[in-house]
């Protein structure tokens, strides 16, 4: 069986700076994969290329066998990839419910259905009580939840999460982990997550890909990866695991 997401030789240069270099990995259907690495390793840049924020300098991205390299972000969303932004981008002037409804309109033709779907997602993420507040009034952890809610609203096959647990308290992290677990087990949602919070990574990921200076330095199951000397050297050692 081919993987849901296949990334091959993905590369990006920003005016000479090689931010991502020849990165290849798979995200099998129904799995949770983590992309980790130190600051500036090129994780977000990988996401941006997968999600169509900008085209790669080189390499290909396939979703369910279909080549989606270089498509626009909206086309990629419609193809089934939902993404969050590390630097959150709420629709500040809209209410929390409206924010998520915009996402849900990707999956539902009718506005009433989209609003219902949004309500469901908001309940799942514990934002329901704040549904009528403008997004601008949310705290950062809530904005991160809103990012997740909006992306989930689009009804993705694959969810890309960029540091959505950053800034959450440990109990909040555990709640969020439980939500992703549940989504993954119940709906078969496939997840690729970038995360510095190792507690969340270890609780969720079946596979880990480690980036450093834009290159893949390790890949495999969590137990092996966290013992990998190269990984300990450049990343996890510093995190004082």
């Amino acid at each position: 069986m081919t993987a849901l997401l296949e990334v091959r030789g993905l590369s990006k240069s920003f005016r000479g700076l090689r931010a991502v270099s020849q990165v290849s990995f798979d995200v099998p259907q129904g799995e949770i994969v983590a992309l980790i690495g130190p600051n500036g390793a090129g994780k977000t840049t990988c996401f941006n290329m997968i999600a169509g924020a900008f085209p790669p300098s080189d390499g290909t991205v396939r979703l369910g066998g279909r080549d989606i390299t270089g498509l626009r972000a909206d086309q990629i969303c419609r193809a089934g990839i939902g993404r969050t932004f590390q630097i959150v981008k709420p629709f500040a002037g809209l209410t929390v419910h409206e924010n998520v409804t915009v996402g849900a309109l990707n999956a539902f033709a009718d506005l009433a259905d989209a609003r219902a779907k949004a309500a469901e997602v908001l309940q799942l993420l514990g934002l329901w009580a704040k549904r009528d507040q403008p997004a601008s009034s949310l705290t950062l952890p809530d904005r991160k939840r809103l990012e997740v809610a909006r992306a989930l609203g689009t009804g993705p096959q694959l969810l890309l999460l960029d540091e959505v647990m950053a800034g959450l308290r440990p109990t909040e992290t555990d709640q969020m982990v439980a939500v992703f677990r549940q989504l993954n087990e119940k709906t078969g949602l496939t997840i690729l997550l970038i995360e510095h919070v190792m507690r969340a990574v270890m609780a969720l990921a079946r596979r880990i890909v480690v980036l450093h200076h834009g290159e893949t330095i390790a890949m495999g199951d969590p137990e092996t990866v966290v013992r990998d000397p190269a990984v300990l050297d450049v990343y996890l050692g510093a995190e004082a695991l």
Binding site: A51, A53, R72, A73, D74, C77, R78, R83, F85, K89, P90, F91, A92, G93, L94, V102, G103, L105, N106, R150, A151, G153, T154
Partner: peptide, 11 residues
Amino acid sequence: EDQEAAQALGI
């Protein structure tokens, strides 16, 4: 409100 976020949501 945010063009990039809008595009990422399929618009």
